[in-house]
Design a protein around this nucleic acid. Sequence first.
RNA 1: GCGGGUGUGGUGGAAUUGGUAGACACGCUAGAUUUAGGAUCUAGUGCUUCACGGCGUGGGAGUUCGAGUCUCCCCAUCCGCACCA
Length: 967
Amino acid sequence: MKYHFNEIEAKWQKYWAKNQTFKADNSSDKPKFYVLDMFPYPSGAGLHVGHPLGYIASDIYARYKRHKGFNVLHPMGYDSFGLPAEQYAIQTGQHPAKTTEENITTYRRQMDQIGFSFDWSREIRTSNSDYYKHTQWIFTQLFKSYYDKDEDKALAISDLVKTFEREGNSNLNAVCDEETPFFDANQWNAFSEKEKQKILLNYRLTFLSDTEVNWCPALGTVLANDEIVNGVSERGGHPVIRKKMKQWSMRITAYAQRLLDGLDKIDWPQPLKDSQTNWIGRSEGSMVRFKIQNSKFSISVFTTRPDTIFGVSFMTLAPEHELVAKITTNEYKEAVEKYVQATAKRSERDRMADVKTISGQFTGAYVEHPFTGEQIPIWIGDYVLASYGTGAVMAVPCGDQRDYDFAKHFDIPIPNIFQDIDISEHACEDKTAVIANSDFISGMPAKKAMKRMIYELEQRNIGEGKINYRLRDAVFSRQRYWGEPFPVYYKDGMPQMIDTKHLPILLPEVEKYLPTEDGKPPLGNATQWAWDTKKSTVVSLQSVDNKMIFPLELNTMPGWAGSSWYFNRYMDANNTDKFASQEALNYWKDVDLYIGGSEHATGHLLYSRFWQKFLFDKGLVPVEEYAKKLINQGMILGTSAFVYRWEYTDVRDNTSETIFVSKNKMEQIIKERTIIEQSKKNKTKDKWSGFTPIHADVSFVNASNELDIEVFKNWRDEYKNAKFITEEDGTFIVGREVEKMSKSKYNVVNPDDICHDYGADTLRMYEMFLGPLEQAKPWNTAGITGVHGFLKKMWRLYYSGKEESFSISDEEPTKEEYKTLHKTIKKVEEDIANFSFNTSVSTFMIAVNELSALKCNKLAILEPLAILIEPYAPHIAEELWEKFGHKESVATAIFPVFKETYLVESTKVYPISFNGKMRFTMELSLDLSREDIEKAVMAHEKTQKQLAGRTPKKVIVVPGKIVNIVG
RNA sequence: GCGGGUGUGGUGGAAUUGGUAGACACGCUAGAUUUAGGAUCUAGUGCUUCACGGCGUGGGAGUUCGAGUCUCCCCAUCCGCACCA
């Protein structure tokens, strides 16, 4: 019987679904193992061959763990809220839920076809109300919490209120907004309800505030920092501007230190940890307050080098700094305003693109140097960012290159406070330099000087040690339709949480998915969008009376809301009451292996760690870090194909035609052109327009880069009459380039086609065979025949003989056959442990090659082999397993046990090298002593030939390894 | 600028603690077989040389009996972050 992969695969996929083979129980005698993939956004384009890479790897791992006796949780779901479905809805009027549903159907079909061992009974969709109900619930918990720095955890707001009632907030050590005023108990108790709520917002872990946000006009929404790439939106590439808006934010900064500390406890890739560390951006230093002369104000600055304070020769404020207007003298008012306006006009992107131009303006005001009493001029300059530190710096031109450049440009003095360091060319940023000309810290190395300076600052009450973070609070509102609605209504302008027992608050229906005409978010179009506090239900917007019925929040939550806790939901996905039961959470605890892309380093992977820590603080989950180990799979890139269009215009009658030129021809023409243009200076009768590369669909091109011209012609109407200049042999060669796989680049390879042509088992093994999992690599179908051939060859081990019938012998295997099997077991287990899936595919190939050469059809070898390969090629494994007479799936068959005894050798083929270069090999008994080996090697004729009469200086013998003769 | 990764045949990639560089596969060459096949099988394939041999892991230096692997410097390339005080 031949290897009919299509039939076999369909048969077993059906079997698995029917028997719920991969359903995980929430209790078991077996140890638990949780293997998680980053769940996909179900886009309209469907899966391409790049998507399943990580899923295949995790599936291999999950299947392997089942063989090793673990109770494996391997779930899948959909991050189904998001922009594309909404954009599509705007264009077509179709409800995003409908599109999403359709896309999910396609995704599911495609995933089933690849044979993943997912427990589909736990499928989740973030856009389902039975899921987002809990997202809303977690949001309200964040609202009801604040961060206590003494306890170093989130505590209930109700406790905070008690503290305020008892003693105000002066002794409180909690994370809050900068501008939070101090008050005592009497003052607190005298505040109106609204004032109290306003103050509490300064403490809540999710809070509403006027925030400077990244506004994307084209998308009509705000974006988080990690949703912006190079100053434009990640999705669509639209420009982004800064704008102040009332927005929900998440106080992730409260968790900055714990997010940093937690990295030591998890086995995640170092580059990913580095980017999180970088993103959090902890820096140690101190705050220093400078008194402004003739003014009641002072300027606070953050500095990492308080030891250089005697080198301060000016102060610089960000143009947006609130003190600018207050301290500028009349003389400089006009110039300062002009400068402030000019910088405000420049977009963030312009400011980013242009970091070399130095600009700034003197304000006319001065501060007093806290130690020398000197007059220090206050400048404003756009090299100081309003959003970092205090938006002001103490400028030390001798110790900071930016301050140095600024000082040089505006002719400000550059005092030197370093011992024996030349600063005539540039600033000295070396932290080992010894401080000089600095009163009580002169002669000290920087580290010591910093400690002393912080002590002095604290003694004089003009500053203190401080740790600053680059991490900003995360904006949590989006002006979109297709996202989780907030369980929030507004009473007297203040946000109120809807009681959790009334959740979910369902996403309302709208006529249009666009923002309203007066600029409100899409939910502004909803007519049923008010909260009746008496009936506890959503009612018509028209019935708002602001007494009992109030307007609901118009923003929705961002994409990362649903993905910040989904891994917990899988543990108990069908719980209607809680996001997961305590029993389920305690049983599964955390993810043992998480596989996904590194592009989520500073987005999802940071936010989800933050939420998990919060849930942990509240005793809602048992562990503080939800993923013990994480692997980043590399992206599979597309190999785009290009044809070169030559727009040929005849100057005489001004006619033009489209010509496509084959790659090598084009290069030849370019060469000739260059020569013509150099010699005749454009005296040709036609206009030279050059070549435009056009993406051709990769399916029109064969493995030798030859284009099917007829298919290409029929692709687009405008190509129907195009001319083609081919190579001499009549072929048309396309250019190739590696790019991200995308529909618009026509380089997408669909896994459906591969499954149809070669089968899912081939696809799975080939994707692994392509290279190391973590590495980015271009997709190239050329090599797939190798893997497919291998599966066919393996099949023939079982279906041997001319008639190709299943024929297995009970005979005892030979030593060699056992050796091949056990060598394979050992290597495959090591490879899986190291996530080196590409090498285990090779190992299987070697095993099958060896067993084929031995004509092995022994049960004792081939039956375990079927289990060995099951994680990689489960369909063929099931089919063969069944043929051995098993009635149950191979999925939980015990993994063959490796026995060292089968690999023990009595001899070793020694490489004999001379001065480190291997010249020949010699087979010697492993029993031989060092001396015996040396004797045997020296007696060998080839040794004597190599030495050519010389006496070796030294002979290195490493028994069991190598012999090296020196001399 | 800072941080990180990568660099090995025509191609994708192998190479435990430093110990036979190029496993496995693609491609290519020759042959066998088949009515045909994107089928199967056999042999060969780093470069160079008729050959003996010589040279080979981006480049250069070093440590070592021995370096793709360790150390230092440089180059190329990709990915993050980017005026972070």
